[in-house]
């Protein structure tokens, strides 16, 4: 036993182990510190913003830009700590291309190791984006087994009244009286009084005299807003002639043949869409929570300093 304790091999092993642990700890400490943006990096963000927006960012906007940049740095660092770059084919191919560009020789593994050692990978836009995407994908996968409750879907259904609305639709015919001809309104009124409505008694309307199943947008497109509004709000019974209604083109005697009132699709009919909305909201929440949690694990002096 004493011989074993005096053994140099053991001493080297212990020293080596301690060094390994200390070095590992040191490296992990280092990796969990965010590097603040340099003035030139901030200048690039400012310039990019100004070029698109047409003015310099405000202090608050610049602060947000910098924070997002730091968040990206954090996410990339975390992804590499988790080793996500070691198994993804897109990143591997990317690293090999980086190696070729840098003139690194050797087999694939040598090239990848060498590129990683240079620290180039974390600066590569494609690698960074891919890493973050992998993390987002993993975050989304964690939710894949979850299903919304009926109450949750009910809430979305009631809070989003715009979802699944089927608009009013009208089928109608009309007789047109061109306002560029004289007495258009009077002619229309006379024919209505005589109850002799027939398209041949009116003027030519290019889009025709019969329309089927049009919503208000389509009616507006063909006749103009005033006519569309008057027709949609008319309380005249189905099948009776009325008017004249004025349009962008003249006057119209109208007979509504069918009226399908606006309605909203039922909860059951909208269920797949509601589930998708719920899922997207949950994914966004989970991702935001994860990023928030990560921020606690990183030295965030830069966040505070900005």
């Amino acid at each position: 036993m004493r011989q074993l304790i005096r053994s140099r091999l053991l001493h080297f092993t212990i020293v080596g182990f301690v060094l390994y642990v200390v070095n590992g700890h040191f490296e992990r400490q280092n990796q969990r510190v965010l590097t603040c943006l340099t003035p030139s990096q901030r200048a690039v963000l400012t310039a990019d913003w100004a070029q698109v927006v047409g003015r310099a960012p405000t202090a608050n906007e610049l602060s947000q830009l910098v924070n997002v940049a730091l968040d990206e740095q954090m996410l990339v660092s975390e992804a590499m700590l988790q080793g996500l770059h070691k198994s993804d084919q897109v990143i591997i191919q990317r690293l090999l291309r980086d190696a070729d560009f840098l003139g690194i020789k050797g087999d694939s593994q040598d090239k990848i190791d060498a590129v990683l050692a240079t620290g180039v990978a974390a600066g590569d836009e494609v690698v960074r984006r891919r890493l973050i995407q992998l993390m987002q994908h993993a975050s989304a996968l964690n939710l894949s087994g979850l299903a919304p409750s009926k109450d949750e879907l009910d809430t979305i259904y009631s809070q989003r009244p715009d979802l699944g609305v089927v608009p009013l639709r009208l089928s109608f015919e009309h007789v047109f009286f061109d306002s560029s001809h004289s007495n258009a309104r009077a002619r229309a009124e006379q024919i209505l009084r005589e109850n002799t409505q027939d398209s041949v008694r009116g003027d030519v309307f290019l889009d025709g005299n019969h329309f089927s199943n049009l919503n208000r947008v389509a009616i507006t497109s063909k006749f103009g807003e005033d006519f569309s509004l008057a027709l949609a709000s008319s309380a005249k019974p189905i099948g009776s002639w009325f008017g004249p209604l004025q349009s962008a083109y003249g006057f119209h005697l109208v007979r509504i043949k069918n009226r399908n009132e606006a309605y909203r699709l039922s909860f059951d009919e909208l269920a797949p869409e509601l589930e998708e909305i719920w899922r997207r909201e949950r994914q966004a929440q989970a991702w935001n929570a994860y990023v928030e949690e990560l921020r606690d694990n990183y030295k965030a002096d830069c966040h505070a300093a900005i």
């Binding site: 963000l45 990019d48 913003w49 947000q64 830009l65 997002v68 940049a69 990206e72």
Partner: peptide, 8 residues
């Protein structure tokens, strides 16, 4: 434009 912010 904002090569950093957009993606996130």
């Amino acid at each position: 434009f904002m090569r950093v912010g957009l993606f996130l």
